[in-house]
């Protein structure tokens, strides 16, 4: 083997080892979720279940019975929250993106600037007044109160679609207009189908963001029937160690909550990367 080849192999090996280290907390979570309670609280940290005896029963124990920590209702709430946030916000962003990218009207620059500035003012910093507005509308502790203020964070999505749509050739729009299409038809029949890659990128990023959101649900959904999964997990993190739930069950619970997103993430990874970088990586 030439020295260049050896160097290359060494680099690949090193990159793989570092990658395994980066993902190690996830493997640790997975293996511990398959152990007995006794093994997870062993004085020496355990990396692999004894005799490769995999206790999948931890998963059912986390979902039902006396050790139940993940409630079906939280799962449904997280699903409803994520679905409607992404769907409604997508509708606002793709139409808004078209307007800013291709239509001529006053105050276009003002709106674009406001959307841009909003990226630096996360809902976290306007938490109290957003809560104030939600309260005044009388929708605290309801699904709309949980969902709509997040739907309204349209800055990122609108600018993403604007970027993508503004690269579509002007002639396409002129031709559609000459054929008598109005802007709604242009949006439905032309822009949405052509902007499918942008939609992929947008959905990839916002599904993860919505599913993993913690602070706003904590404030807007104070009653337990609206609780989302991050709140459920947080209450597991808050409790005194091992006092109520055994570690292996808690690990299983985290796997159950995280696994859907890991699967989504692996499936949409190229779209996710495209959404962040504006292109892809090779």
């Amino acid at each position: 083997m030439s020295s260049a080849k050896i160097a290359h192999s060494a680099r690949v090996l090193f990159a793989t080892l570092v990658g395994l280290l980066m993902a190690a907390p996830l493997f640790y979570m997975l293996t511990n979720s398959l152990m007995t309670a006794a093994q997870t609280s062993d004085l020496t940290p355990q990396l692999i279940p004894h005799n490769l005896d995999l206790h999948f029963s931890n998963y059912t124990a986390a979902l039902s019975g006396p050790t139940e920590v993940i409630y079906a209702q939280s799962f449904i709430n997280s699903g409803i929250f994520t679905f409607f946030v992404v769907l409604l916000q997508w509708a606002l962003c793709v139409s808004g993106g078209l307007v800013i990218a291709k239509m001529r009207f006053r105050s276009r620059n003002v709106i674009t600037a406001l959307l841009g500035v909003s990226l630096f003012i996360p809902i976290l910093t306007t938490l109290i007044p957003t809560f104030f507005v939600t309260l005044k509308l009388g929708i605290v502790n309801t699904y709309p109160g949980l969902i709509l203020p997040i739907v309204a964070q349209t800055g990122f999505g609108t600018l993403l679609f604007r970027q993508y749509i503004s690269q579509m050739p002007e002639e396409l729009f002129d031709a559609a207009r000459i054929d008598g299409a109005n802007w709604w038809m242009i949006l439905r029949r032309m822009v949405i189908p052509l902007a499918r890659p942008a939609t992929g990128a947008y959905v990839a990023i916002s599904v993860l963001t919505a599913w993993n959101m913690y602070l706003w649900p904590l404030v807007a959904a104070q009653s337990s029937h609206l609780e989302v999964l991050t709140q459920t997990l947080a209450s597991l993190g808050n409790q005194t160690f091992g006092a109520t739930s055994p570690q292996n069950i808690v690990y299983a619970a985290i796997v159950i909550v995280t696994l859907p997103m890991i699967i989504v993430f692996l499936a949409v990874q190229p779209a996710f990367v495209r959404g962040l970088t504006g292109s892809g990586v090779e």
């Binding site: 993902a23 609280s41 993860l208 993993n212 991050t230 890991i262 989504v264 990874q269």
Partner: peptide, 28 residues
């Protein structure tokens, strides 16, 4: 993918996993 996969995790979920990694509880 190994490098990117933590992006799928919430602060809430990773908080608990890391709490066990930094554990102050029964074992180390």
């Amino acid at each position: 993918s190994l490098y990117l996969i933590p992006a799928a995790m919430s602060f809430a979920a990773s908080a608990i996993v890391w709490r066990y990694i930094f554990l102050d509880g029964p074992g180390y």
